Simulated assay, not measured.
Amino acid sequence: MRVAIAGAGAVGRSIARELIANGHRVLLIDKNPESIKPDRVPKAEWLLADSCELSSLEEAGLEHCDVVISATGDDKANLVTALLAKTEFGVPRTVGRVNHPNNEWLFTEAWGVDVNVSTPRIMSALVEEAVTVGDLVRLFTFRRGNANLVEMTLPEDSPYVGKPTGLIPWPENTALVTILRDGQVYTPSAEQPIESGDELLFVTAADSEEELERLLAPVEHG
């Protein structure tokens, strides 16, 4: 897979190293000459150019990329890069870095962003996931599927403690993906019971989240 990354700062370089380690071809693009440091990621291609300019993206050969990642520290630049990649070059998958949480609402398919990655949201979700019991914590949004990856730590007073997952009336458009228990990962089967303290990972539609909370934690959510 060929991946272009706009923004060759610390974030962009880190992403590039991970992708290269997984066998992908990576092109790093940055308009700042001081950011062009091929010795930091020697197996990547490098291009000194402005990813917001159509001519630069043509030079980068974006039409041959499978994924474009907008990873600069400027939300405006990330949006423009994603939009050009999607509309002008037909890149199948675009990922946009959100630097300021107030701008997250812009990072949608309307601006050519298939997946947005908000560092503030991820950090707050990790904090909530670590300390909350009986509340759903949204970890990730799947834009194309209009669904979310959510987590709940099952409270002691849940009516479904000890019940097999196959007997639980899950809300529509909801799937239990994984059960995390005592450091182990369990693939849920219909006979697999859930226990107090289990971390449950679901993929669910946004409009089913409230029903899921009420189902598993009715004391907390009425």
Rank of each mutant, 00 (worst) to 15 (best):
K43E: 15
K76C: 01
G145W: 05
A60F: 08
L176I: 05
G112Y: 02
G96A: 13
V117C: 08
A147C: 07
L62Y: 01
V150G: 09
P193M: 03
M123S: 14
R93N: 08
M1C: 05
L126P: 08
D182I: 03
R97N: 07
I36W: 01
V115H: 10
R13G: 01
T153L: 15
A49K: 05
P159W: 10
F140W: 12
A82Y: 00
T141G: 00
W105C: 06
L54S: 05
E53Q: 12
P159I: 12
T108Q: 06
G166N: 03
R181N: 04
I5E: 04
T81N: 01
R143K: 14
L79E: 02
E128R: 06
C52T: 14
N99Y: 02
P188Y: 06
A21L: 14
K43L: 13
G96E: 11
P171I: 08
L19C: 00
Y160W: 08
E45T: 06
P159C: 07
T187Y: 14
E45Q: 12
L62V: 07
G162A: 08
V133T: 14
H24C: 01
R40E: 15
Y160G: 01
I179Q: 00
Q192Y: 08
P155T: 06
G166Y: 01
A49C: 12
V115K: 09
D114M: 05
L47N: 08
V113I: 15
N116F: 13
S124R: 09
S196I: 09
S51M: 03
V68L: 14
V68C: 00
V41T: 07
A60I: 10
R25M: 12
E191D: 10
K37G: 03
V131M: 15
V91P: 05
T72D: 05
E18D: 12
D207Y: 05
T119Q: 13
L48Q: 07
E34V: 05
I179M: 03
P218G: 08
P188T: 12
C65H: 10
K31Y: 04
L167P: 04
D114V: 09
A110Q: 15
L84R: 09
L27F: 01
G222Q: 03
S56V: 15
L62I: 14
R144H: 09
R214D: 09
V11I: 14
D157T: 10
R214N: 11
A110V: 15
L27A: 04
P171G: 05
P171M: 06
P155K: 02
C65F: 11
R97I: 13
A110H: 15
A130W: 07
P155H: 05
P169S: 02
V91H: 00
G9E: 11
P193E: 04
S70E: 04
E34D: 13
P38K: 03
S189T: 15
D66I: 06
S189Y: 10
W105V: 14
V3H: 09
H221G: 04
V91S: 00
L54G: 00
L215K: 05
K43H: 14
F107M: 12
S208Q: 09
P120C: 02
E220R: 11
Y186W: 14
Q184F: 01
N103H: 12
G73P: 04
I15D: 05
W170P: 08
